[in-house]
């Protein structure tokens, strides 16, 4: 769930826009480079964007008695690194803002920052960290997707708490309030997103070993010895 149109004061809207813009510009550069250097990536890039499209369209009931939707950004961040997700996430947010009145143009910067910047980076960081300690691929994928999803909504809560601190309890009071609306609702959905991302990754391992090998998904870390392991997996 994104921050609705007009629900951030102009100064905040502009500030988040300024904060997000470099990530999106950098992402567009990474994306064009990836497509130019590895034209065979285009299909999988499309599939990663499509995954975000599907998941962010599904509003799912949660334990808090309200609904929210996953983000789907973890998969692309793991496969193609976070800068590319900044672009794919922004496209999804634009679609929803323009056609569905979900999110908005004035809050686009803030929503891009949470969904397309912090989410992918946080998920990717957790994924890389776990892989470095030789955690099994699917456990790392689940954790990465879970964190990408949940961190997005933690950022949304912070953004709203900054814009609307509680008159009595201040920023922290408001953070608790928005956190209970967004972040707590999101916990089971983040689990779902983690499981669905694992499912898609399992299908990719079955169907697209070549792509995954090229993208370094099977590399636990860049230590000697892992290369043989990668080749063994690729066969």
């Amino acid at each position: 769930m994104h921050i609705a149109e007009g629900f951030l004061p102009p100064a905040h809207a502009i500030a988040w826009g300024v904060a997000s813009a470099p990530f999106v510009v950098h992402g567009v550069r990474s994306l064009t480079r990836e497509v130019r250097e590895n034209p065979e990536s285009t299909l999988l890039l499309g599939a990663s964007g499509a995954f975000t499209f599907v998941l962010s369209a599904l509003k799912i009931p949660s334990v808090t008695g309200s609904c929210s939707h996953p983000t789907g950004t973890g998969l692309g961040a793991i496969l193609f690194r976070p800068p590319i997700m900044a672009v794919l996430g922004t496209i999804t947010l634009l679609f929803q803002a323009l056609l569905l009145a979900h999110g908005g143009l004035t809050t686009l910067g803030a929503n891009v920052f949470s969904l397309a910047v912090v989410g992918p980076w946080a998920g990717y960081a957790v994924y890389r960290l776990l892989r470095r300690y030789e955690v099994p691929l699917m456990v790392a994928v689940f954790s990465g997707a879970f964190v990408a999803d949940l961190s997005t909504y933690c950022v949304t809560s912070v953004q709203l708490a900054l814009a609307f601190p509680d008159p009595g309890s201040g920023f922290l009071g408001a953070l608790g309030k928005f956190g209970s609306i967004f972040a707590v609702t999101q916990i089971p959905l983040a689990v779902s997103e983690g499981l669905l991302t694992v499912l898609v990754m399992r299908l990719l391992v079955q169907s697209s070993k070549g792509d995954l090998t090229r993208l370094g998904v099977f590399l636990a870390d860049k230590r000697p010895g892992t290369r043989a392991e990668t080749e063994a997996v690729a066969r």
Binding site: C67, F164, P165, P167
Partner: peptide, 14 residues
Amino acid sequence: AGADAQAETAITEI
């Protein structure tokens, strides 16, 4: 209801 609608309500409360 959507979490975003709840957030709008929370904003108008604050």
